[in-house]
Amino acid sequence: MSEFLISARGLTKKFGDFVAVNGIDFDVRKGESFGLLGPNGAGKSTTMRIIGATSQRDAGTITILGKDPEKHGPQIRAHLGVVPQQDSLDMQLTVVENLYIYGRYFGLPRKFVKGKIEELLTFAQLEEKRDAKVETLSGGMKRRLTIARALVSEPEILMLDEPTTGLDPQARHILWDRLFRLKEQGVTLVITTHFMDEAEQLCDRLIVMDKGNIMAEGSPASLIKDYSTKEVLEVRFGSDRNQEVADKLRSMCERTEELPDRILMYTEDGETLLEQIYAADLHPKTSLVRRSSLEDVFLRLTGRTLIE
């Protein structure tokens, strides 16, 4: 098998007249953590469903684990672990039963699945909830169970669609920790997210998607380096005055982005820039100096924010 576990060229998917995925190319290497970053409707989930060998492409080529999903759907799915956007657990069954039935869907022997369940319960920190009905679990627990379920078959590739959307900060961090451990063990991860911090934390390499197209590709650090400055100064003059001062600010730094409530100023040195602003007798109501993030990359590439 080649070094790429997934290889797509000109991948296209349409729903009627709407082009959800517009001829994209990408490769995923063994052992890497690959991200699809983009806002809702960018085509991430559609791409994931094609990789997951459940939805078929309309044009282009794709091989997953060396096989064409159009011809070998079940054989490919046998070696994928899928964590869909919506947990889609069986609410009426218990935690253990959910893991058990899912293991059976892969044709795994009962005895093996039973042993595996113990391991997965520990991994997902759900030992005490083993006989609880799924509908009684918290959102974070359900999400961990969904991930544990996807691991029952020891997949070659673990695919996570928006793994932490809808979770509170603490639950997100627990989940990131679990995923990070998997990554350390060399599991190939494919993750979609519209959270830049999640992409920065978990992805070795990512593609930035918008409206079915790939806008940029690279590691989080190289994307920030290529498409943004080192620091960002955020200033607010109040919604009435922002427009008024925008022209003056634009001449003071490399680039600005005017958002409805604030102005972002791209610069190598935020503190110095702020001093210059005060020196020019402009007095922002609030100011914040921070490092550039993938959010800034996305803004630069599309002129829009990730979460609208």
Binding site: P74, R77, A78, S88, Y105, F106
Partner: peptide, 9 residues
Amino acid sequence: YSMNSTPLS
């Protein structure tokens, strides 16, 4: 949908 993401058709 989760059943269909296994080898099941």
